[in-house]
């Protein structure tokens, strides 16, 4: 009995530094966002007294609804493109020789280690009206001299795919690595065409990796701020930009809080769905085992 108490005490002692730190600087501030969203703003850029629903009502502004909608479709499209690129890449990585696999993984991870701002800036320079991409496209006749490559949603999607692609490839590769490729051959032997074998055997086989990859792109993409800020222009603004504008431009923390609540909900939705899917799928499998 005494050793049990001592063991518990030691556990609490070991847990409390990180637990208390994160409770105070992660859990508490997140709760704060909800609280401040219900407070009025004061004219000095701070938070006033009393409670109000004004900030939440202001979200119904068509301007905000536009931004929310744009945030959703830009993130959705980015996720879709990332996944459809990452699946064939993950497949290749799982099938090539050990040596090549190591080299390829290294090559995929290295750009992710470079400063994020610099990667976005590099694209800004590439897509510049006098930049190399524009000249090649005009030279090929694929773009007119006036076609803008920067400051639109397409530029945001392009740079987002660039930024999040490594995060998608890694979990899909990890899942593909565990996949039994003999299953694919069996499907082919049984007469399935390549595409069908791929769709009905390979994709379900790497389901878990796909789900992780999806969350790894979708969530940060929903919260994107720098990418639309630097290459999006006014037509490419996302929720993150609106939050930053309320904070830095007109210093209205409660309204920024209300917008953040929307973002938190947008982020939580796919997470909860993913958790639910995992649970549902897990049970029958566990029984079979």
């Amino acid at each position: 009995m005494r050793t049990e108490i001592r063991s518990k005490l030691r556990e609490v002692l070991m847990t409390s530094p990180s637990f208390l730190w994160l409770a105070a600087l992660f859990a508490l501030p997140t709760a704060f966002v909800f609280a401040i969203a219900l407070r009025p703003a004061n004219p000095f850029g701070g938070v006033g007294r009393g409670w109000t629903l004004d900030n939440l009502e202001r979200l119904a502004d068509p301007l905000y609804l536009d931004v929310v909608w744009r945030t959703l479709w830009i993130s959705g499209l980015t996720t879709l493109i990332c996944l459809s690129l990452a699946v064939p890449i993950g497949y290749v990585l799982a099938r090539v020789s050990r040596k090549w696999r190591g080299i390829c993984l290294m090559l995929i991870v290295i750009p992710f280690w470079t400063n994020f701002l610099i990667r976005v800036f590099a694209w800004k320079a590439l897509l510049h009206p006098e930049g190399p991409v524009k000249r090649v496209l005009v030279g090929l006749g694929l773009a007119g001299p006036q076609t803008p490559l920067l400051y639109n949603p397409a530029a945001v999607i392009l740079v987002s795919v660039y930024t999040f692609l490594p995060f998608t490839i890694l979990p899909i590769y990890a899942a593909a690595d565990k996949f039994d490729f003999q299953l694919l051959e069996a499907a082919r032997d049984l007469g399935a065409r390549p595409w069908r074998a791929f769709r009905t055997v390979f994709l379900p086989g790497i389901r878990r990796g796909l789900l992780t990859a999806l969350l790894f792109v979708l969530i940060p993409s929903l919260g994107s701020y720098i990418i639309p800020d630097l290459v999006g222009g006014p037509n490419g603004e996302m929720l993150g930009n609106k939050i930053a504008q309320r904070v830095f431009v007109d210093r209205n923390l409660p309204e920024a809080g209300a917008l953040s609540v929307v973002l938190i909900l947008a982020v939580l939705a796919p997470l909860v769905v993913a958790l639910f899917l995992e649970r549902k799928k897990e049970k029958p499998e566990a029984i079979l085992r």
Binding site: L25, P29, V33, G223, V267
Partner: peptide, 12 residues
């Protein structure tokens, strides 16, 4: 997402 962490810490 980073921006949520940023704004929540700022508010705190």
């Amino acid at each position: 997402p980073e921006i949520l962490m940023g704004i929540s810490l700022l508010m705190l």
